[in-house]
């Protein structure tokens, strides 16, 4: 193949870690501010919950796409199975809130381990195609097991148990705002956790794999292990998000485990900014709010997502976060210039 046509445009992908190495504390504070302000700003607490839940799923997707360079269409598998596992455990075994969430994370992580181990047997586009085909497979499994999943009708009457310790109820989560409290606390923990993972030896190696997998292998890393672990972590976070989503809706629809769910999570990741944790919040927020505003006015608003996706790839590869960043840089540059002039 013509190298001109196939070599990645190096200059286009910025060192994703550089931003955060510079000011991680500032972005963490910004994240906290957003999480606190969100229910006050958006029309309803339910919508605020939805934003943070999808932001969690995007954190998971970002670990794969932004930090490891793995484009996975498999996220719906983990999201959907997290929703089903938590819902089924609560319905059939009457497990409590935290057990349900833990089970969902475990299911998502385990499935991601399997999906990852299978898909990374191939690289490049074959890898991507495999993740997509495996999502289709998961969809058909969920569809076939309709006795458990409710098939097309979805799983109804998913409870939202209270926060309880040893049978003693601490908080009731029935009100949307109370549930937002739980989601927000979990999100902050996951965000800080993701930050730690990225700053770890493991996280630094993921970036190396994203940059140049052949060289990473040549300096001694068994890249398969890293990719599979990245998958497992991503799947666990995404499964947890799926469980919260089922609790939010009191319902686990089949669409949770369909390909469009993977696409939606991917689109949020890209529009927010790949390789940026704060971008996860931006991407999920933008799309969820846009969907809420537009879907009532114009049911075909998804068309805009297609356009936005193309526009971002063509003109703003860093996504919203990248846009904000270059704006900030230009400002800083201008400020420095005026100082020098003075």
């Amino acid at each position: 193949m013509n190298p001109k046509l196939t070599t990645p445009a190096r200059g286009d992908s910025r060192p994703a870690n550089a931003i955060f190495r510079r000011r991680p504390a500032a972005t963490t504070l910004a994240m906290l501010a957003v999480v606190i302000a969100l229910p006050l700003v958006v029309p309803s607490a339910t919508l605020a919950c939805e934003i943070l839940i999808f932001a969690m799923a995007v954190l998971g997707c970002n670990l794969l796409l932004g930090y490891t360079g793995l484009l996975s269409f498999g996220q719906a598998i983990f999201f959907g199975s997290g929703a089903y596992v938590a819902a089924l455990a609560m319905i059939h075994w009457q497990v409590g809130l935290f057990t349900a969430l833990l089970l969902a994370a475990a299911a998502g992580g385990l499935l991601a381990l399997l999906v990852g181990a299978l898909a990374i047997r191939r690289t490049g586009i074959y890898f991507v195609m495999l993740t997509l085909a495996l999502t289709q497979m998961a969809y058909f499994i969920a569809y076939t097991l309709s006795d458990w999943t409710g098939g097309d009708n979805g799983l109804l009457d998913v409870p939202r148990p209270p926060v309880a310790i040893g049978g003693f109820t601490l908080f009731d989560l029935e009100s949307p705002l109370a549930f937002y409290g739980l989601v927000a606390v979990l999100f902050v923990f996951l965000y800080l956790g993701a930050r730690r993972v990225i700053d770890s030896a493991f996280g630094s190696t993921l970036l190396a794999i994203r940059e140049n997998e052949a060289r990473a292998a040549a300096v001694g890393y068994d890249t398969r292990h890293f990719k599979i672990l990245a998958f497992a972590l991503s799947g666990a976070v995404t499964g947890l998000a799926g469980a919260l989503y089922a609790m939010l809706l009191n319902f686990a629809p089949l669409s949770n485990i369909e390909l469009p769910m993977s696409e939606q999570i991917l689109i949020m990741t890209i529009i927010g900014g790949t390789g940026s944790l704060f971008g996860s919040l931006l991407g999920a927020g933008t799309i969820v709010i846009l969907g809420d505003l537009l879907s009532a006015l114009w049911p075909r608003w998804m068309l805009l997502l297609g356009v936005a996706l193309i526009a971002v790839v063509m003109f703003m590869r860093g996504g919203l976060w990248g846009g904000l960043e270059s704006l900030g840089r230009r400002r800083a540059g201008a400020a420095r210039k005026t100082q020098e002039d003075a």
């Binding site: 001109k4 046509l5 070599t7 990645p8 445009a9 286009d12 796409l65 360079g69 484009l71 490049g124 586009i125 991507v128 696409e263 991917l266 890209i270 075909r300 998804m302 068309l303 997502l305 297609g306 356009v307 936005a308 996706l309 193309i310 971002v312 790839v313 063509m314 590869r317």
Partner: peptide, 26 residues
């Protein structure tokens, strides 16, 4: 977009797929 990495090509064609699907529904 021929010169871009496959990831970006996939994303652009995914956008095209979404647009075709929505226009078909319209």
């Amino acid at each position: 977009i021929y010169h871009l990495p496959h990831t970006f090509q996939i994303l652009v064609t995914l956008g095209i797929a979404l647009i075709i699907q929505e226009v078909s529904i319209m």
